[in-house]
Design a protein around this nucleic acid. Sequence first.
DNA 1: CATGAATGAGGCTTCATTCAT
DNA 2: CATGAATGAAGCCTCATTCAT
Lengths: 201, 201, 201, 201
Amino acid sequence: MIEDVRRAQIIESAIETFAEVGYSGTSLARIAERAGISKGVISYHFAGKDELMEQLVDQVYREITGFVAPRVERESTAAGRLRARLRSVAEYVQGHRSQLLALAEVFNNLRDANDQLRYGETFNEPIYQSQEAMLRAGQDSGELRDFDARVMAVTVQAAIDAMIAYWGAYPEHDIAAHAEQLADLFENGIRAHHAGQETDR
Amino acid sequence: MIEDVRRAQIIESAIETFAEVGYSGTSLARIAERAGISKGVISYHFAGKDELMEQLVDQVYREITGFVAPRVERESTAAGRLRARLRSVAEYVQGHRSQLLALAEVFNNLRDANDQLRYGETFNEPIYQSQEAMLRAGQDSGELRDFDARVMAVTVQAAIDAMIAYWGAYPEHDIAAHAEQLADLFENGIRAHHAGQETDR
Amino acid sequence: MIEDVRRAQIIESAIETFAEVGYSGTSLARIAERAGISKGVISYHFAGKDELMEQLVDQVYREITGFVAPRVERESTAAGRLRARLRSVAEYVQGHRSQLLALAEVFNNLRDANDQLRYGETFNEPIYQSQEAMLRAGQDSGELRDFDARVMAVTVQAAIDAMIAYWGAYPEHDIAAHAEQLADLFENGIRAHHAGQETDR
Amino acid sequence: MIEDVRRAQIIESAIETFAEVGYSGTSLARIAERAGISKGVISYHFAGKDELMEQLVDQVYREITGFVAPRVERESTAAGRLRARLRSVAEYVQGHRSQLLALAEVFNNLRDANDQLRYGETFNEPIYQSQEAMLRAGQDSGELRDFDARVMAVTVQAAIDAMIAYWGAYPEHDIAAHAEQLADLFENGIRAHHAGQETDR
DNA sequence: CATGAATGAGGCTTCATTCAT
DNA sequence: CATGAATGAAGCCTCATTCAT
């Protein structure tokens, strides 16, 4: 009810604040100010700043996954799935710029009591593993050449993040074309060598 | 003389602190404590925390460039230069883990008075441009296929950063092999299609 | 009706909270939480935290007095009344541990707008005076020796409070035996000297 | 050096604040204000509010013990030692009113992370034990009658604390006379019966 | 009669920076 | 050249209280 509305409003305000002034510039006071509410309200709805950030990550993460996953699953070949992933991320990201920037801020900075990153590489494990499985299936079917699937999974993710970050810095950058370029790169880079195939674009 | 020694000592201490506890966990007090000096000394030798961080970036950046650049210039083909870059970065990084982690922290967080990232994508411009020039030369010579050189430059840089970050999280990861995998990926991904060449490894 | 039930429930919850976490650890939120009610309810039934505490004192005080007074009045000699008082307090206290601890917390900490203790020594005045009257009667009848009745009244009260506090800290302590020891002490300490001993002063 | 001077000044200011406005009314801001220093200074010289309070207790405790102990040790009989203790406490307390009130505030309120009193009855153990030893020696020598030495030790301490508290509330009260009255009470109350009286139990 | 939501003051602490010595 | 002391802003959090529903 009202509870959920407020929490959503606060998270939305936090997203915009992180996106605009970065992790260390984001205080509860600033979030509250942007939301037009009193400072204490955030502490009322969230156990603390950390919980707010974790919920932010949860929400944004769920949203983007909910958008991308079905579009990927529609494809059957490894190359097709990879291209679908790149395209759908690029598509989703348009209109959700702040969300992605905020996600990156929290990702790269939130630490636990032992100074370890709360969302470190270990948080990416599930993604890496599903990506690896997909790539290995492509290798087994003969579609893809031999390579280290873990390295490739890490690199695909890095290419996506960089695409988002670059577009974050240069909003006029054509992110859809960027995604196609990446798909071409990986398609050429990992397919099995026999005769010269062509990309679908 | 003493001046320079002190500054170097402070920067060294700052590097280790950033690497260990991250950007928001790094205070002047903590840097001073690790260096075994008084808090005030830092303010005496640097105009402020910002200047310290800028000098840190300058120093680390100069070091890594000084290591990588000559190894790249020794090569003549685009593929060779790219592989040399990947290899030499991977080589340099071993033994300079803290430096690279600290560099990333400052890179991703330091902002100016207008909340703009001090080292944003614009800081990468020189790298992108030199990389682009190299790639275009490869395209002109017929070595490389047609693609967006800017996107490729961004992606190469991202792949390198991710390699470092992954190795930062999993120190037992074989970063040298990782670099070769990346070289293979890009070599296959961007060379001109005629007959099937082989990578050198 | 319901009104009174709620007030009693809240006071009961406050008693246990004070007893457990002390004065400064007791917040309305904590009291409400223990009572299983909403925070606002307390403010609805009491003018404020201060009034709640005053009612708590009133209630506990009335209870203990209602238990002790008739048992004291049954006795006729000063020594008998004193022993009756000590015994009945010790008896009452068993089964009302939290009440007494809570009473002490509020007693020692609640202050008015001028930072004066709300229940200071002045609150003990009625007790002191009744005790003094009883002791003076014993002196007049020749049962008790000469001494400062006010000092003795203060000391008796202090001995009782310490007995309760000690037993509060060591629940296995035999409080009934403690009460008898105190009665012996005072009986020997204040009765008239039939063989004339002298103090060293 | 300056360090010690400041710490002493802050503790002194804390003592007066506790004495005046009580435990819950004492904030670091108020202490700093009274000391005429900036809020942050306290955090600079003490790890936190808790450490400040512990040092306060240490200091006051050491002072009072240093005054009382030699005066007690000068005496040889149990009655003499007890009277010496009562007299010297009463003497010391005059001129150190705030110290004693502050000590009581911290004593009765400071709690650890588990809500247990930092200075509970257990803190009094050493006092109780030394007092007990003294009383038992008196019983062994035939000077004192049979009684529970622990109960008596607790009661003596309580009588002293009450004397201080009463005088704290009524500064015109004659605390020296009060101490003599207490000494008389205990002397009569615990000495061996040469003419054999009996208690009623 | 009860509640959950909101407020704003105040508490403790950390921090970058300044300054006298 | 170095230090320790001090500052005051800002951060997060808790709290008693108010209020619309």
